[in-house]
Design a protein around this nucleic acid. Structure first.
Lengths: 157, 157
DNA sequence: CAAATATCTATCGTGTACGATATAATCGAC
DNA sequence: GTCGATTATATCGTACACGATAGATATTTG
């Protein structure tokens, strides 16, 4: 099943195939799933999924009702992902989707009263996750910056 | 839309809601998508998706044909995710799924000749991604270990 | 201003992902 | 050995996630 290193096939000339556990990409992949699981008990009290929570976070921190395109750039998601997601949040009564009068191509996303009020009920979550992470705030911030740098470099290439 | 800090509501007592860009979880979330995109051009030459590539990597590095359960633990995916994934790889002729004679509950996954041979065609990919990451090998390994630690702590909690 | 072009969002098809549940096989206690 | 509990995989329903494409609106060009 696997190719063992031999004198004629040392690791230095023919690299062993990396197991998932050795791969940077797998650590990220599995960490995202673990993160989603960690958020789940908090978010299901609010009836949100993790991607829905990210959309709501973007809206809570926005200065003005953003367009689908702006959310798409901020969250790095395609409209084919965002549109159904936003429709579900609209169906829950958390936001409205309206064509912009200035530019009818754009759709503006506005929080409803319910959507705005939900914010306060999420205030504790970040702290819970941070505590569960077993890492200090400094470590978490450093990790975030490293991971963001990796992501930006991958997007550029 | 957003609550600005005021003298009576300073950031130190009522934390501003974090924007996605400030959140550790979002950096991971978006980095995984960027990583998947970075792999895409390499993998589509092989007809694989990124999760399929992870499964194949696990199989290439396995000592003996693993069961679905072992793959599930290694990749941290549920059987409801793995079973259809493995069926697609089987339909592509890359592996076989057979009930274990010793324990009929288990299903053993064995690479076909085609599945084994595909490994050599993936040897260059890790290097391409590493180069694209704009990070040194040392940085990547340190990042992997930090992210793995975070993941393991989240799973424990 | 009309035609070509670009931009913005939505739709469709395929492939993850997971929780809840179902089914079958094994193991344990007696 | 048989019944109950446990374990291993599969199935189902819902929700992302993206590429390809469509359709409508805006902008640019001639």
């Amino acid at each position: 099943m696997t190719r063992s290193p031999t004198p004629s096939d040392p690791e230095t000339t023919v690299p062993q195939p990396l197991s998932p556990q050795d791969m940077v990409c797998f650590s990220l992949y599995s960490a995202v799933h673990a993160m989603s699981q960690a958020y789940r008990p908090h978010l299901e009290k609010l009836g949100l999924t993790y991607p829905q929570y990210l959309v709501m976070s973007a809206l809570w921190s926005a200065e003005a009702p953003p367009t689908v395109g702006l959310l798409s750039r901020q969250l790095q998601l395609e409209s084919s992902t965002l549109t159904p997601l936003l429709k579900r949040l609209e169906a829950m009564g958390l936001l409205t989707r309206r064509r912009d009068a200035e530019d009818e191509r754009q759709v503006r996303i506005t929080l409803t009263e319910d959507g705005q009020q939900m914010r306060d009920r999420t205030a504790h979550i970040a702290g819970c996750i941070a505590a569960q992470s077993g890492m200090s705030v400094e470590e978490l911030l450093a990790l975030r910056d490293q991971v963001s740098r990796l992501r930006d470099n991958l997007r550029k290439g």
